[in-house]
């Protein structure tokens, strides 16, 4: 029997870690789960299956919370979102069943390694974000007509009604299947991949991609969670503490995001992501005995890697993004 103080302390510890994850997830736009799993596994020692289960549950709460607001603003394209959910939910089922095989064969290291790679790869699009606000229109194809992929929304920043249409629905579906697979495999919303599918493949404006992706994440995560539930990857105490914490963090993050005027701050968030990604990768290789170095050395290696990557990315995208802003200003002014 533990004392009341100890019980409270365990709860607060998970809660604080989750608030941090929710905050960082919302400020980078990657979602709470992507930050939550590394924090829970690396720093609190929670088994990765429970961490992934808790992350998937928290993803439902943040997605549904945010989606209710976005539907009101009418930026989310519900048709495009629902159409692509066929692929994300199917992918999520395949991903959850794959991870069931991985866990039952004690191959946890694969999840760590894939997680690390996914975080590291999502840093680049996040660093580029803000560059292509409205894409150059591509000629509509047959899927635009059949699946009614057109829409419009009022852009507050540009002060005008933006009309858009999506193309290459089939390519969007293909990428969404993969996004769903990763979501089921790692227990995250994989919002970055969903945005890639809509922004790059279907040529939709960034604002439509991000809000529609958020709308889809809840349904994808509910699919994965149901299978996780049956497999026993959801530990009620951990999952409830993280769902509450991530929601608090995400709500605070949204409020902070509106107030941040200095865009350069996001480089600090990206640096934390780079560190977590590298650390997950190294931990995976360590668990597989491919790279046996002490934990302290792992942290040092991750730190060195982070510094190098951030310097490279800042010179590649940080300075360039400024130029684009200046050029844009010229065009519209």
């Amino acid at each position: 029997m533990l004392s009341l103080a100890i019980r409270l302390l365990i709860f607060v510890e998970i809660l604080v870690a989750s608030i941090f994850a929710g905050l960082l997830g919302s400020l980078t736009g990657l979602g709470g789960g992507t930050v939550l799993v590394p924090v829970l596994t690396l720093f609190l020692g929670i088994p990765i299956a429970y961490a992934a289960g808790a992350a998937l549950i928290s993803t439902i709460s943040t997605s549904s919370g945010a989606a209710s607001a976005y539907i009101r603003d009418r930026i989310t394209n519900i048709r495009i979102g629902m159409g692509l959910e066929i692929a994300t939910t199917t992918g999520s089922i395949v991903g959850s069943l794959t991870v069931a095989y991985i866990y039952s064969h004690n191959l946890e290291w694969i999840v760590y390694v894939v997680f690390g790679i996914v975080i590291l790869l999502s840093i680049i699009p996040t660093a580029q974000r803000g560059k292509y606000e409205i894409p150059d229109p591509k000629p509509p194809d047959w899927t635009t007509r059949v699946f009614k992929l057109q829409g419009s929304y009022y852009d507050d920043a540009l002060k005008m009604e933006v009309k858009y249409w999506g193309v290459r629905w089939w390519l969007g579906e293909l990428i969404m299947f993969f996004a769903g697979f990763i979501s089921g495999l790692l227990g995250i919303g994989s919002g970055a991949l969903k945005v890639l599918g809509m922004d790059w493949a279907m040529n939709l404006p960034m604002k439509v991609s991000t809000t529609t992706s958020n709308f889809m994440i809840g349904v994808t995560a509910a699919t994965g969670s149901s299978i996780y539930w049956y497999l026993g990857y959801i530990q009620p105490f951990i999952a409830s503490a993280t769902a509450i914490g991530v929601l608090i963090g995400a709500m605070a993050g949204t409020k902070i995001l509106i107030r941040i005027t200095n865009r350069q701050i996001r480089w600090i968030f990206l640096a934390i992501l780079a560190f977590l990604g590298m650390e997950m990768l190294l931990r995976g290789l360590y668990l597989n005995r491919m790279l046996v170095v002490p934990i302290a050395t792992q942290y040092t290696l991750s730190l060195i890697f982070t510094v190098i990557v951030m310097v490279v990315l800042y010179y590649r995208y940080g300075l360039k993004a400024r130029e684009v802003v200046v050029r844009r200003g010229g065009v519209h002014g």
């Binding site: 019980r7 709860f11 088994p47 429970y50 996780y228 026993g232 009620p236 951990i238």
Partner: peptide
């Protein structure tokens, strides 16, 4: 219930 390696999960 509260230990990080708790066996009290959704299967039990």
């Amino acid at each position: 219930i509260m230990s990080i390696r708790s066996r009290v999960n959704t299967t039990v």
